[in-house]
Write a protein that binds this DNA or RNA. Structure first.
Lengths: 335, 335
DNA sequence: ACCGGGATGGGTAACGTTACCCACAACAAC
DNA sequence: GTTGTTGTGGGTAACGTTACCCATCCCGGT
């Protein structure tokens, strides 16, 4: 079932069919209808691979660190909503999270498949690597703060978000506030990555409030397991922290588990705050104070920017959303 | 950067390069080394689209109902682990969950991209539709109980799992046990889908224990929102149920939220059990009794079966995992 | 009657890779 | 010496689609 079959069935040339498929110029309404009818009748569907050889694949690739984080679906759904109408399909690949090698392979997989645009969520790769990809394929990077002339950026103001969270804990009277950060395996360790910003801002805010001596960071990862391990490290200190600011809700969940195992009550003994305001954080049994960033808008914007780039825009755009604090029951004044 | 460039750089034919790339027969070790060197030197990467025109794409497509359910990552990770060594890349598409139209589009997207194999997780499509796809592309269906000669099945013994959960509640002394099920939008409504099995088995177990009069089902969806809405429906009955068996952990989380809002304590007033034993269920603050099924093994097996089919196996395989019950603090004797 | 130009449709050469064949050399068996 | 056989390498025609170009036709203006 190829374009040739459709052409002979509709008594037109393959060129005509191709034009109809692409809404190209030079087709009379009569022919369009005839071709459309033939396509429906035969149930024809164009092969993406053959299209890729000459033109577009109508595919947007999304690189996710992993699909465990409940914040990513918001982004992906926003993206899908935005590009579906234009006939684009969203495909996702997992980047393997902590190891830059796995991420690199995932990005290459998207490039090899000639997707028309790539959204990379918090990639670990060096800026040079990202720009190499962006030189070939329209690219939007989400969650990194550096500016680039070749790709667009969509990000949350992580400084503001961190200030909100840490400021909230300080306002409650906490002084020994610890932080759970993500340690990535990359040698280059781009300082512009969101977790680096959050960690740095945590230290800055602590210092500005005269709490530099109480800075304590467990560099594990933004996962449940990382939060668990990080909390155990932090609890080993004497005196132990009275509050923990986790760089992501997932890590905060792990922190809650570790605190419970240690026999500590939240928030009576230790307060916990997260970041991302995932739906799980709102559950009554968890009720996690968290920083909210609008993932759906970020996803939609990323989609729009990619479509613009596919259509030819060359200038670089930077879109920043402002986070808000959602205080819940996991934070309270220190004991 | 094409195969021709590599060929001329290595002073061999394109055929030779192609053979090396595919590990095909008819290459001397000397030539293989020479070609490999040229490939590395030039940083050549084969274009998936061009390969797809003649041969394989080395891509496995995974259809997910959505990426919000924390059980799916286990499956995807198992799959990835299994096929990565063979050089395959896993790409994921979202099926839109409740609407068969969105799912159909997602499946078509995978077929159009000529993936070498497809894993469909709990698809809603009719068996006929699935078999049409499977006739063209090696297919593994996860979470459906019907037998097919053209695709392989990987599933959890949902009858056994449901018996464990409902039996556990009955053994605790509950009689008014309600169920939260998934209502799919399909007209055909395949009875072999996992949620249909769970609902049917729930009714059977209740009946077998003489509790037919206490059967109460809220047909919403296996999501947090569905669990929330379903629970509100169930609580409207008088007398209200003393236990809720949600067909999935996600729905159980929604149930916990709704119960909390209604001022009911878990498990003192109402017990709650889920299915999937997601990592969230284990959190101390939630401590949800749940049915565990090994997603990693299911994913690995699905990967193995797909690779076998790509290699030519035509017979049909069915792989069933046996679930276990993980009792936690969300279930207790009725008040 | 002639010309110009817009609208419409088609012919055809790519795109990068692989499957299928064939060619040749080296060597063993008769 | 002839005949297979095996190992090794290359030539080439596809695969399905689109971009580019060219051929008509029709209409209005001179």
């Amino acid at each position: 079932m190829t374009i040739t079959d459709v052409a002979s069935h509709a008594q037109v040339s393959t060129t005509a069919v191709s034009k109809v498929l692409r809404n190209a110029y030079g087709v009379s309404p009569a022919m369009r209808d005839r071709v459309r009818a033939a396509i429906d009748e035969l149930g024809y569907r164009p092969q993406a691979a053959a299209r890729a050889m000459r033109g577009r694949t109508f595919t947007i690739g999304v690189l996710l660190p992993h699909i465990r984080n409940p914040f990513f679906p918001d982004i992906v759904d926003g993206m899908t909503e935005q590009v579906a109408d234009a006939g684009y399909q969203v495909i996702m690949v997992q980047g393997g999270g902590a190891t830059p090698t796995a991420e690199r392979r995932a990005i290459e997989a998207l490039v090899d498949r000639q997707v028309d645009g790539i959204l990379m969520i918090a990639p670990l790769a060096s800026r040079t690597q990202l720009e190499e990809v962006a030189a070939t394929t329209p690219t939007v990077v989400l969650g990194r703060h550096e500016r680039s002339a070749v790709y667009d950026s969509v990000l949350d103001d992580d400084e503001a978000g961190t200030e909100l969270a840490v400021g909230h804990l300080i306002a409650l009277g906490h002084r020994r506030i610890a932080h759970i950060a993500q340690k990535d395996g990359s040698r280059s360790r781009p300082a512009a990555l969101l977790h680096a910003i959050r960690a740095r801002t945590y230290e800055r805010v602590m210092t500005e409030h005269g709490l530099a001596d109480h800075i304590a960071v467990a560099a594990t990862s933004y996962t449940e397991e990382g939060g668990h391990r990080g909390t155990r490290q932090l609890l080993a200190a004497t005196p132990r922290p009275t509050a923990i600011f986790a760089g992501a809700d997932m890590a905060a969940f792990g922190a809650l588990a570790a605190l419970h195992e240690a026999g500590l009550r939240v928030p009576a003994d230790v307060s916990v705050a997260g970041y991302d305001n995932t739906s799980m954080a709102a559950l009554a049994h968890i009720s996690l104070t968290s920083v909210d960033q609008d993932g759906a808008i970020m996803g939609r914007t990323a989609g729009r920017l990619l479509l613009e780039r596919v259509e030819g825009r060359a200038s670089s755009v930077r879109f920043v959303v402002t986070p808000t604090l959602v205080p819940r029951a996991s934070t309270a004044p220190p004991p």
